[in-house]
């Protein structure tokens, strides 16, 4: 008669005691005491093989899958908060020369704004890839049509894209780019020399401009508020222009130190370039570089 396997209270088969004599049999296939065949145990080796197969073949298939998949082309106005870290393509026009940031003669990075007709996005490139672009004369400049692939970074303040591979930037340019400078200056945070300012936009029109767009402004300082001591709040300079609108310009301490004696004062008329931002639903301008702020009608700051 076939012996009945012993059961545990939960109803599972007891795999280590003999179902016939009830004595300990351990992991053996037959009971060493009475020779009864033990309930079947599955070999651990089987699971090991299955795991290695799943890991390696699965990884191979996943790799093949992502390589076969075309990098999606997105419109700037379709970029949403949930797309943070997405690796995507964007295509559009560059309206202003890229800004090149140098330190000690070396390129630390560059950035430019790409407009695809639905909105503008800030494109950033780190040092090594920026060097490649400069060496190959492919630093974007005003008028270029550009297509690139990179990874999106979406924060509450702005949307930007990091170009991780210089090879993923394609430029459609009618005239060849000028050769790279023979002796790059070792001044930090220097923009391209041909980065000419645009016509100033009225403050009242900022509501119609996309967040993240860099704009030229000419306005009068109404009020300056320094951040409380020890606070991480920004400096806040309220600007007003002929359109009647008043908009705050913000910048943090690090930039305030660079401004030094050029710190805005009430009543002063300024010409500046800043990024259109929003904070808690209110439009504001964010000053990105100290050199972007100068007295109206005056020469650009040295």
């Amino acid at each position: 008669m076939e012996p009945t396997p012993q059961s545990t209270p939960s109803g599972t088969v007891d795999p280590i005691h003999c179902p016939a004599c009830g004595r300990f049999a351990g992991a053996r296939a037959r009971c060493p005491h009475c020779g009864t065949r033990m309930p079947r145990r599955m070999s651990l080796r089987l699971f090991r093989g299955a795991a290695i197969l799943l890991a390696t073949v699965g990884l191979g298939l996943l790799y093949a899958m992502v390589r076969a998949r075309e990098i999606p082309l997105v419109r700037v106005d379709d970029v949403a908060e949930t797309m943070n870290f997405a690796y995507v393509r964007v295509a559009g026009q560059v309206h202003r020369n890229a800004r090149v940031f140098r330190s000690g003669g070396r390129i630390e990075g560059l950035r430019f704004t790409l407009d695809d007709g639905t909105g503008a996005i800030d494109i950033r490139v780190r040092g090594r890839q920026a060097e490649v672009l400069e060496r190959e004369g492919r630093i974007p400049r005003a008028g270029d049509r550009v297509e690139l692939a990179g990874s999106l970074q979406v924060t509450a303040d702005a949307v930007s894209m990091w170009l991780q591979d210089a090879g993923a930037l394609h430029i459609d340019r009618e005239t060849p780019a000028p050769p790279p400078p023979a002796d790059p200056s070792d001044v930090s945070d220097v923009s391209d020399p041909s980065d000419a300012p645009d016509r100033p936009v009225p403050l009242a029109t900022l509501a119609d401009i996309d967040t993240g767009t860099v704009v030229e402004i000419e306005a009068e300082v109404v009020h300056v508020r320094a951040p409380p001591a020890g606070s991480n709040a920004p400096w806040r300079v309220v600007l007003q222009d002929g359109s009647g609108a008043a908009v705050p310009l913000v910048f943090w301490d690090e930039l305030a130190q660079r401004l030094a004696d050029r710190m805005p004062a009430p009543g002063q008329r300024l010409r500046l370039r800043a990024r259109r931002d929003e904070y808690r639903g209110t439009i504001q301008l964010r000053l990105l570089r100290a050199d972007d702020l100068r007295p109206a009608g005056g020469a650009p700051a040295p």
């Binding site: 890991a55 996943l62 390589r67 797309m83 870290f85 690796y87």
Partner: peptide, 22 residues
């Protein structure tokens, strides 16, 4: 293997771009 998987999901994730934050 997990490092390789990391390169895939960090650089070219197969997850839809609309849900890239995950």
């Amino acid at each position: 293997l997990s490092g390789f998987l990391g390169f895939i999901v960090l650089y070219r994730s197969p997850v839809a771009v609309e849900m890239a934050f995950q």
